[in-house]
Amino acid sequence: MSIIEIAEEESEKRDNAAVEAIYLKLGEMSGVVKEALSSAFELAVEQSAFPNCRLVIEEIPGSRDLQVSALELAS
């Protein structure tokens, strides 16, 4: 899924630093359901380079966007 791809690419740009958390801004009007996204993420992240990564979702009222806003990287 593209959320994990974005995180993987950003991690590669930074010496493959392990991604510990992905911060997501989820627009209320985006058509994406938080629960569906969370469960899909749990399954997909297991097959990624960082299986223990958390997903932190912040819901944005009135927005149609879905944005990876920040990453938490291991130092």
Binding site: I6, E20, Q67, V68, S75
Partner: peptide
């Protein structure tokens, strides 16, 4: 060495990439 995790801003729109 700093052991605290780093937060980096990304601001990548997931739909925009698909678009």
């Amino acid at each position: 060495m700093n052991a605290a995790p780093r937060i980096v801003e990304v601001r990548q729109n997931v739909f925009k990439r698909n678009d």
